[in-house]
Design a protein around this nucleic acid. Structure first.
Lengths: 209, 209, 209, 209
DNA sequence: TCATAATCGAGACGGTACGTCATGTCTTAGT
DNA sequence: ACTAAGACATGACGTACCGTCTCGATTATGA
């Protein structure tokens, strides 16, 4: 995903304002203000008006370039992650170790307050806007899932996974519980938890001794 | 969970209106109206005003008995499930079969439009209201988790699970992926999927042959 | 006017609650509370609910015995004046002196904060409720006007007023400016002002030297 | 008084909305709607919401520019009178004739339903809002009183009034009874009544034959 | 004198309007 | 042309009172 592609660019040749004249200053100020406000009051209480005021920007400037509050938050998120969605997982040859590394990194992300806020904002919006949901899926979730499956496939070929293992299921077994625990706040997110998940899942789908 | 315990009753001896004088007619009308509106326009677009209007009830009557729109929706949910949270899982002696039964039932629930709407409403609200999140956890999620663990424990004692299996992890491995797939709409929710989840997880934590 | 006849008694044989069973305690408490509140927040901001609460009385008890807030205030007023409306003016034989006495008394009444509040309350209500206006006219204003005219008539017969003097006009010349100055707060209300009014008016309608 | 100076402008350098951006369309629509509603349902039953609805204007637009319903009505009034408050009385050289002209005009105004409604609205509000009372006094009543006194002074200098006549008292004797009769509805307002008032008052304070 | 019926304090009810806030669009000046 | 500022029409918010309507718990007749 391109670094700061706004959500609304994705589908059509966009008729409207001329992007060449867009003020970079205003764009940055909006993202910064939105990020701060997300951290301070939470997604649902962030208002476009407040973002504009804090950014020292006219409301119209926001509405001109982003179709919704969700789109602004989406841009905040991609700015945070630096557009790493879909990057290949590390491959040291040791599948278990690599998965531990990745799951620990996910745990760390979820434990970062700014990421937590922003990701929750997403999840909120996703529930009520299927178009947004599909966009997020396409740009974030599916690329990441594919990256997982690529690494698992490599592992399977290396004999570290049962030949018949369903890669989709394995991916979900690894990330689903983690995500669920975070989302529902049903338990602490720690490296130990990440490790235990990897171990248990690999016990199921690893090669039989 | 008691059938129609409203969310706001949970913690304190409730100072305020006298519940004995509460109009059962109004209570039912509000829940019905809220449920209908959830289905028609989705949680975020439901307004308290609209619920009141549709129910033929004064707004104050809603604000008198429920602290928020979320609390109304919570009651709609508990009315829908009939308060089954925390009920023991079936125990036929065949752990795998019982888990399949339960996961298939969960799949069916998620595929029911009314449940889907209501549950998404929850999940939305949960993200931005930690108090609500804790209430939902206490009354819905934890009881259900415990019910799972109880059944798993029985299975472990019957030798259908490895003696050292971590029941929390197993529960999460069973429900997390399911929930995640539903929430993020990353794939279809079918009985076959439920069955595959059970099979894969039990492969990990079942007794070694 | 009978001392505490409530406003609503005036026209019909009142069907409804049995006045014999009326709680004197409640009646007094309501009038006291209303009077206090009038002084504290002013007529328009007094609410029936507040009167009931302060009086320790159910709202229905007020609505049972008085048709409106205005009627309650009317009773407060008649309780204040002791029902002196329509009482004959003093007649010492000296018309000018008697008028000075009466106008000074009116000035004193207007300067009494409680009377001021209550009378303003009336005047407010009068403007927007013609039925109430007519009731007040019938029970307060006309009797008082008649009392004035009676005294003036006696004076005219005693040769202290021009034989052709229009008693209605003279009455209005005496009370109109006083009332207007009070109502509009266009100037101070003093005994000297009362005296000057009497002197000037009598100069117009007194017997020519 | 400037034609359409809103009530709230009177005292301070007004911080708040920028009057240059004010929509003239909205301003007119509000005044028209308020005027119509005043005539239809009476001041106390006029609601800001109804004014906004009839004017096709947002409630906020009313609250942005007027501090209260009373202030809107004040503007309606000044629009009605065309800002004639404080204009000099006619001076034909014949004091009695000029006063008759003026009092007859006042009678006509009070008999005009729209003026009647609006002026009663004022009087209502005046009773319960001293700030409003003072504003009305300053902008309407005092200028008019001064205009009266100017004309009377000219008459006094022309020998048509006793040299020692108190102009304030004379003014009040002329306008007080008129106003009182209108306000309390204690009698009909006719040209004959106006004439009689002038005649009687001048009898008191005119030069002795 | 005692049952019984009405009034009492209390307060929930269906409503209306309040005055505020945020939405997304439109207008006004200023670069 | 695009900006910052902010007025606009709209509509929901949560609160305050309205006047009506139940509740039990006292009264105070009148059978």
């Amino acid at each position: 995903m391109a670094e700061s592609t706004p959500l609304e660019d994705s589908r059509a040749p966009r008729r409207g304002p001329d992007p060449r004249r867009r003020s970079e200053r205003a764009r940055r100020a909006v993202l910064r203000a939105a990020s701060e406000l997300l951290g301070e009051v939470g997604y649902t209480k962030v208002t476009v008006e407040a973002i504009a005021a804090r950014a020292g920007v006219g409301k119209q400037t926001i509405y001109r370039w982003w179709p919704s509050k969700a789109a602004v938050v989406f841009d905040v998120f991609t700015a945070l992650t630096g557009g790493t969605a879909g990057e290949p997982l590390p491959d040291t040859g040791d599948l278990a170790a690599d998965l531990r590394t990745v799951l620990r990194a996910i745990v760390d992300e979820f434990n970062d307050p700014e990421m937590d806020r922003t990701t929750r904002a997403f999840t909120t919006e996703l529930q009520n806007d299927p178009v947004f949901a599909e966009a997020v899926n396409e740009r974030l979730l599916r690329p990441n899932t594919e990256a997982f499956k690529d690494r698992l496939r490599a592992g399977r070929e290396a004999g570290q996974l049962a030949p018949g293992a369903d890669l989709d299921i394995v991916t979900e077994l690894l990330t689903g519980p983690l995500h669920h625990r975070w989302l529902m706040r049903t338990g602490p997110l720690t490296h130990a938890y990440a490790d235990e998940l990897v171990e248990t899942v690999l016990a199921a789908v690893g090669p039989r001794d």
